[in-house]
Amino acid sequence: MNTPSPSILILPGWLNSGPDHWQSRWEARYGDQRVEQDDWEWPKRGDWMARLEEALLADPRPAVLVAHSLGCQLVAAWAAHTRHADRVRGALLVAPPDTERDDAPPQLYSWRPIARQRLPFPATAVISTDDPFCSPERAAEMAAQWGATLVNLGPRGHINAESGLGDWPEGRALLQALCVTD
């Protein structure tokens, strides 16, 4: 039986991903689909979850989720509530933020508490040792709770455009591993 190639859904974080961000570069280069949110500045968890559900159900193919920053929290929260998790083949979770930190911006308060249950699909969490939005210890704890394989890039900041990743071929290789089926 020939399994269709999955759709790749790009899930940016708070304030979206700009043109130099690896997510935007993948969208332009590979045709991955960005899940657009109505409000990038004051993200409401329920609204973002509904939009992800809509995007997932709009395509009959299985999906692989490519999340950055708050997009990682979106995947965890959505997976805890959806009846359609079986449509997801895997998730690449890059630079999950700690929305429970005392210094978290008020725009992110609706993302508390962090969803901590094991994800019902394979996941890879990519973290940095000097991410300003999450300590490596806290990121590793979230990855373990989600059942995600942990990849530590060392000192790469928030693993975004400012990290100098360009097209980030190493990240694309991690994504391709999640796209492979048995």
Rank of each mutant, 00 (worst) to 15 (best):
G46M: 08
R29H: 09
P6D: 03
P122H: 08
G90A: 05
D167P: 09
P6F: 02
A139W: 02
D98Q: 02
A55H: 03
V75Y: 03
E162F: 03
N160V: 03
R45S: 14
E162L: 06
E162R: 02
L56C: 10
A177I: 00
T99C: 15
T129Q: 10
T124P: 00
I10V: 09
T124N: 01
A177Y: 06
V126F: 10
A123C: 03
T149V: 14
W42V: 15
A79C: 10
S24K: 06
T3Y: 12
T129D: 11
M142H: 12
Q145H: 14
S24P: 09
D98T: 00
P120Y: 01
A76N: 05
D103F: 10
W48L: 08
A139M: 06
P132K: 03
A173V: 15
G164R: 00
D167N: 11
M142Y: 14
W42L: 14
A125D: 01
I8C: 11
P12F: 01
D167H: 10
R101C: 09
R29C: 06
R101V: 07
P105K: 05
L174N: 14
T3A: 15
P62V: 06
R34L: 09
A58I: 08
A85L: 05
G166P: 07
P62G: 15
G171I: 15
A177S: 13
S163R: 00
Y109C: 04
Q145W: 13
W40T: 10
T82I: 12
P60M: 04
A125T: 13
G147Y: 00
L15Q: 15
L174Y: 13
A115Q: 13
I10E: 02
T129K: 04
A140R: 13
R83A: 12
P19W: 00
G71A: 11
H84A: 15
M142T: 07
L11R: 00
K44H: 13
L56Q: 11
A79V: 11
M49I: 14
P6V: 04
P96R: 01
L165M: 07
E53P: 05
T149K: 10
R156E: 07
A104G: 09
P155Q: 02
L92T: 03
P96D: 04
A115M: 12
Y109Q: 10
V64N: 04
C72L: 12
C179M: 15
V94G: 01
L119T: 08
A63E: 05
V75H: 04
W42C: 10
L153E: 08
H81C: 11
M1Y: 09
V180K: 14
E53H: 12
Q23F: 08
E137Y: 04
A144F: 09
